[in-house]
Nucleic acid binder design. Structure first.
Length: 826
RNA sequence: GCCGAAGUGGUGGAAUUGGCAGACGCGCCGGACUCAAAAUCCGGUCCUGGCAACAGGGUGUGGGUUCGACUCCCACCUUCGGCACCA
């Protein structure tokens, strides 16, 4: 064994060996229990960043640990490789998005390989490869057949800079999540996936996700936004039409003094036609619709409204109230119409005051009268008045009673609403999965038949952004024949949101080369669900919600059994430098290549695992990296020093033939092993697991100094074996080198995770803390098996204790076995 | 506004069920080795007072429960994250 730790030689050598031996390849014909360890696949932006290094180091520890524990571990890697940056690069550098993407993939793959990650590269997938997107298209067609994909004209978020539509989820604070340009609204015919059909199940099944962080579950619940309420149908005076409103406060319905419709409400057009204020109203609608969604829905936005000259009839009391339209009512939520009850809602109160609308109180406190006139909305509980037959009812009771009354009259009933909207998936972009639909003048919308898949991306396109999909510029692509009648037809030129690609990649990994289907059911059922998913919390809502949606749809189609895709989720924190996220614009990037070049992959991995627990943000520290490098060197020298002697003996320790020094060392080693095992498997405590290994190394150094020539070599060998095995998940290269130097011929990564000897961990003597009135006053070393009475007696006999308690009454003595004695005196 | 998480030395962070606060690492101080330096090894390092033994204080703030609280309860402050005119 080399005196010096030459990480470069070691890492290159073992990476080659592992690859040659196909060490991480797995299949389903295996008796061992399966374990699917998945990390979020990267977008091939060009280079790995530290966030990737952290993500994949964490995943690799889990995969390697489970492998050593005897699981059949699937640990795949791939590329989320469709997306806008490739197109931007195409525009900027005049290179094709495909070549830009594939070059990036090639480079990033070598970066990942240099990190020594235990991936089964045989299962690599790239979402931009026709072998992959063929099945993305096929899945879209299954959704289409089930009525889960549909096209409709919709007001959509539009990013003027990217010249594309954005999903609600991709609008952050009113701006495009990619380029930060303020988003506007426009009308387009777009494809949607009917995720709202699954809102109830996506919500209910969150409770099954016991292995997910509460934080993520709460975020998903809020996003789905279930709201229980009542629908009430108001007739429109002088017409046969009616308007249905959604409310969570039907108990206040007798207090309705007006109705408000969203400007885009379908009835508005009809109601204003031919009225005196038609022109005025139309102008107002145009103004509102010109506002982007963010401005319109921001809290500070001025609430503006206008009467439209029509009147509604309150179903509970027949009262005639004016109908208005206003900017604050949203077309996409509930029914797009609300009732105005200014007496009992803050927002309505302000609105009614501004427009001089009447205010009619109908709920008052149980033992007080409301001020007259009201100076603010009364939103507390109370009893009903001015409410016909419902007078005197507590308002909470009235909610149910009034809803039942509306239902009996056929003018409403209970209703559950969700904040979640259908998923807009059309993108006017080139570098995405083409939507496999053809438009024929004769046959209408025709799905591309399965045997004609994939619909390939054409090469002859222009990438200048002009608001239309670049695919429109490819005549060979657009012009096609109708699969149905054979006549001339046009292809759909929009591509799919890339979130679709990543909503099923974890299923493709289970059967990545399947040419006859997206994946075989038996393979998917063998591996799914994912046992451990690791990735950034920024995907807590979108990617994870979409993936759950896909899994449920595919499960309903009987393509896979599991109804949830990810059993356990670990959301790692960000990597920070100088307290903020690393970014090019801040110039605080640390390049993984440089760290690996300077210290090796093992040091880089050790640092990101040791510096903070995985869920928390990690502050980059060059000095911390140095420290990890020093630790590996310290381990190296320790083993190098002993290896010649240790390699000659077996690690068979006779516990009865050890002296005190030996037993103390052995205890540390076995305690460390227990600690590392528990930290990894129970709470992802990689940082504390590593610190425990460090303590063991410190103990070995101490033993070497103290025992000198008398060192017990079989014991030393046992310790060094443990050390290599425990280090294996964290620093796989150096662990393999040490393991090999100790005379083992098989890989440390296929070795079994060792089992500690519980007897060896038992302390012979323990230190008992002696407290007087809760303050530590003394310590007591007693045999481990001392009884409570013995400890108590000994504690009370201690000189210091006698001194402290003399002249005082002993009120109580608490003895906690193996821990402490607390003497309470007065 | 609503929901959630977190506040511990100079610093990153430990403390598993309510039982010695500060493990481990970084930094700093001292010692050994060396002609010297680097590297390495050993020791020290929460604050205040004291030569010391030791005493007092100490986990965002203020209360509470308890023999005992970083840990549990109540109120508040700060930071971060999510949602937000959702009827």
């Amino acid at each position: 064994m080399d005196e010096r730790y030459n990480f470069h030689a070691i890492e290159t050598k073992w990476q080659q060996t592992w690859s040659d031996d196909n060490l991480y390849q797995v299949d389903e014909s295996d008796d061992r229990k399966k374990y699917y360890c998945l990390v979020m696949f990267p977008y091939p932006s060009g280079r790995l960043h530290m966030g990737h290094v952290r993500n994949y180091s964490i995943g690799d520890v889990i995969a390697r640990f489970r492998r050593m524990q005897g699981y059949n571990v699937l640990h795949p890697m791939g590329w989320d490789s469709f997306g806008l940056p490739a197109e931007n690069a195409a525009i900027k550098n005049k290179i094709h998005p495909a070549s830009w993407t594939w070059d990036n993939i090639a480079y990033m793959r070598t970066q990942l390989q240099r990190m020594g990650l235990s991936y089964d590269w045989d299962r690599e997938v790239a979402t931009c490869h026709p072998d992959y997107y063929k099945w993305t298209q096929w899945l879209f067609l299954q959704f289409y057949e089930k009525g889960l994909a549909y096209k409709r004209k919709a007001a959509v978020n539009w990013c003027p800079s990217c010249a594309t539509v954005l999903a609600n989820e991709q609008v952050v604070n009113g701006a495009c999540e990619r380029c930060d340009t303020p988003v506007t609204t426009t009308d387009l015919a777009q494809w949607f996936l009917r995720i709202t059909d699954y809102a109830d199940r996506l919500l209910a099944d969150i409770d099954q996700l016991t292995g997910w962080p509460d934080k993520v579950k709460v975020m998903q619940k809020n996003w789905i936004g279930r709201s229980e309420g009542t629908e009430a149908t108001f007739g429109i005076d002088g017409t046969e039409e009616s308007v249905t409103v959604f409310t969570t406060r039907p108990d206040t319905i007798f207090g309705v003094t007006y109705l408000v419709l969203a400007p885009e409400h379908p009835l508005v057009d009809q109601l204003i036609a031919g009225t005196a204020q038609e022109e005025q109203v139309r102008q107002f609608i145009n103004e509102v619709r010109a506002e982007d969604e963010f401005t319109r829905t921001s809290d500070e936005a001025e609430k503006r409204g206008m009467e439209i000259g029509a009147y509604a009839i309150n179903p509970v009391n027949g009262k005639k109230v004016p109908i208005l339209i206003a900017n604050y009512v949203l077309g996409g939520y509930g029914t797009g119409a609300v009732m105005g009850v200014p007496a009992h809602d803050d927002r309505d109160f302000a609105f009614a005051t501004k427009y001089n609308l009447p205010i009619q109180p109908v709920i008052k406190p149980v033992d007080a009268e409301l001020p007259e006139p009201l100076t603010e909305a009364y939103i507390e509980d109370g009893v009903l008045f001015n409410s016909g037959d419902f007078d005197g009812l507590p308002n909470r009771e009235a909610i149910g009673k009034i809803t039942e009354y509306l239902a009996e009259k056929g003018q409403g009933g209970f209703k559950v609403n969700y904040r979640l909207r259908d998923w807009l998936i059309s993108r006017q972009r080139y570098w995405g999965t083409p939507i496999p639909i053809v438009y024929c003048d004769q046959c209408g919308t025709v799905p591309v038949p399965e045997e004609q898949l994939p619909v390939l991306l054409p090469e002859d396109v222009e990438f200048e952004p002009n608001g239309k999909s670049p695919l429109v510029t490819s005549e060979t692509f657009v012009n096609t024949t109708c699969p149905h009648c054979g006549g001339p037809a046009r292809r759909e030129t929009d591509t799919m949101d890339t979130f679709i690609d990543s909503s099923w990649y974890f299923l493709r990994y289970t059967d990545p080369k399947n040419a006859n289907g997206a994946f075989a059911k038996d393979r998917a059922d063998y591996w799914m669900p994912v046992d451990q998913y690791v990735g950034g919390v920024e995907h807590a809502i979108l990617h994870l919600l979409y993936s759950r949606f896909f899994q449920k749809v595919l499960s309903d189609m009987d393509m896979v059994a599991a109804t949830e895709p990810m059993r356990n989720l670990l959301t790692q924190g960000m990597v920070l430098k100088d307290g903020t996220k690393m970014s090019k614009s801040k110039g605080n990037i640390v390049d993984p290549d440089h760290i690996i070049e300077q210290y090796g992959a093992d040091t880089a991995r050790l640092f990101v695992l040791f510096a903070a627990p995985p869920e928390r943000d990690l502050e980059w520290s060059d000095a911390g990296v140095e420290g990890c490098y020093r630790f590996i060197n310290r381990v190296w020298r320790l083993v190098a020093d002993w290896v010649d002697d240790a390699a000659k003996v077996k690690a068979s320790v006779d516990p009865n033939a050890l002296n005190k020094l030996d037993r103390d060392l052995r205890r540390v080693a076995h305690l460390s092993l227990r600690k590392v095992t528990e930290e990894i498997s129970e709470r992802f405590g990689f940082n504390t697991a590593i610190s425990s290994i460090m303590e063991m190394v410190n103990a070995l150094y101490k033993y070497r100094d103290e025992a000198g020539d008398q060192a017990n070599l079989p014991l030393v060998k046992e310790c060094l074996q443990f050390l290599s095995l425990m280090l294996a998940p964290f620093v796989p290269h150096v662990a393999e080198e040490l393991w090999s130097a100790l005379g083992n011929s098989d890989s440390v990564h296929s070795a079994a995770w060792p089992q500690w000897d519980e007897a060896a961990t038992k302390a012979e003597e323990i230190t008992i803390v002696v407290q007087v009135n809760g303050k530590v006053r003394d310590r007591l070393v007693v045999p481990a098996e001392s009884s409570q009475e013995e400890i108590r007696a000994q504690a009370l006999a201690q000189d210091r204790v006698v001194e402290m308690i003399s002249g005082k009454d002993i009120v109580k003595v608490i003895v906690v076995p193996k821990k402490l004695v607390n003497i309470v005196v007065k």
